[in-house]
C-alpha cells in the first residue's frame, strides 16, 4: 500500500509545548482519526501538514510531494478544512460557486451543486448568515469539490447537533476511495468507532499509539477482577485500572495475564482505551 502522508522527524515548537513525531506513514485509501486531549497537538499537526504553520522542523510528504521541492504540487495534493469558516461571509453560495469555477480549473461544479441540494444549503443567503453547521458543511463540500488526494479536517463535527454530525460523517465516508485519504481530528470517540480505519493517539505532543483501529481494539482487553486479585504484580500488567465498590476494572494488553488468571474480559471501545491511557492510574470510583 502506497503512502498518502509520510512524516519524518517533525518538530513544532511553541513557548510551552513541543510536538515531536519521529516517523509516521499514513497509507492511501483510509480514514485516519486523530484523537487526544485538548492541547495534545492535534491541530498543531494538521496545521503543519496543511502549510498553515510553516514554523516546523522535519519532513512532511503528501502523495510523495514535499513543500521545499515543489510547492505547487504539494499545495495541490491536499485540501484542508479548518474548524473555522474559510470563506468571505459576505458572499452567498451562488457567488462562491462562480468564483470557485473561475479560480480552480478542476473544481467539480456538478458535485458541489449536488451536495448543496442534498444538504439543503440555501444558495441565496449570505454565507455569514448560514448556521454554524451549514457553514461547516459548506467548507467541507467546497474543498471536496476540488478533489484533493488527501483531505484534512480539523474537528469537522465540533459543536454540531447529532443530525448534522451524521450528515458530515456520511459525507466524509462517501468521499473515500482507493486513492483518496481522509485525516480528521476529533474529541468524539464514537465518531472514530464509526468511520475511522486507522487511529493516531496523541498525548502531550507525542504519538502514544498509531495503528489500524481493529488492531488496536484486538490488542487490548478490558478486564474485571476481584479486589483481592489486584496485586502489585497485576497492577504492573495493567495500563490503567479503576477500583469500584465490589471489583476492579482495568485495561491490559497482556493476554497471558487474562488467560492465567481466568479473568472476565470484553473488547474495549475506543473510548475505553482512550480513557485508560489518558487518565490517572488507580482512580477509585
Amino acid at each position: 500500500m502506497s503512502e498518502a502522508i509520510r512524516i519524518e522527524d517533525l518538530v513544532v515548537k511553541f513557548d510551552n509545548f513541543t510536538l515531536d513525531i519521529s516517523g509516521l506513514k499514513v497509507p492511501k485509501g483510509i480514514v485516519l482519526g486523530i484523537v487526544g486531549r485538548n492541547g495534545a497537538g492535534k491541530t498543531t499537526l494538521l496545521d503543519a501538514i496543511s502549510n498553515t504553520n510553516k514554523d516546523y522542523y522535519g519532513k512532511i510528504y503528501i502523495d510523495n510531494n514535499a513543500i521545499w521541492e515543489d510547492e505547487k504540487k504539494y499545495l495541490k495534493s491536499f485540501g484542508y478544512v479548518p474548524d473555522t469558516l474559510i470563506f468571505n461571509p459576505a458572499l452567498n453560495v451562488r457567488k462562491l460557486l462562480e468564483i470557485m469555477k473561475k479560480s480552480f480549473l478542476d473544481f467539480d461544479e456538478q458535485f458541489f451543486l449536488k451536495m448543496v441540494e442534498t444538504l439543503e444549503l440555501d444558495a441565496k443567503i449570505k454565507i455569514g448568515n448560514l448556521s454554524h453547521g451549514n457553514q461547516k458543511k459548506l467548507n467541507i463540500i467546497t474543498i471536496m469539490a476540488l478533489k484533493p488526494q488527501v483531505l484534512v479536517l480539523d474537528e469537522p463535527t465540533e459543536g454540531l447537533d447529532p443530525v448534522s454530525k451524521n450528515e458530515i460523517l456520511d459525507l466524509i465516508q462517501s468521499y473515500i476511495d482507493d486513492e483518496k485519504t481522509i485525516i480528521f481530528s476529533t474529541h468524539q470517540t464514537n465518531e472514530l468507532d464509526r468511520i475511522s480505519d486507522y487511529l493516531l493517539f496523541l498525548e502531550q505532543g507525542k504519538v502514544l499509539m498509531f495503528d489500524e483501529k481493529e488492531q488496536i481494539v484486538n490488542d487490548h482487553y478490558k478486564v474485571v477482577m476481584k479486589k483481592e486479585q489486584l496485586t502489585e504484580e497485576v497492577k504492573k500488567s495493567l495500563i490503567n485500572y479503576q477500583v469500584n465498590s465490589f471489583d476492579v476494572t482495568g485495561l491490559t494488553i497482556d493476554s497471558d495475564l487474562v488467560k492465567e488468571m481466568h479473568l472476565d474480559y470484553v473488547k474495549p471501545t475506543i473510548e475505553d482505551i482512550m480513557m485508560n491511557y489518558l487518565t490517572k492510574r488507580g482512580v477509585k470510583k
Binding site: 504553520n53 510547492e71 499545495l75 484542508y80 470563506f87 479560480s103
Partner: peptide, 16 residues
Amino acid sequence: ENKRHYTLANNYPITY
C-alpha cells in the same frame, strides 16, 4: 498573512 490562518488564497497551488 497566512500564519495560523488558512484560506484558499494563501494555499493556492502556485510557485513561491
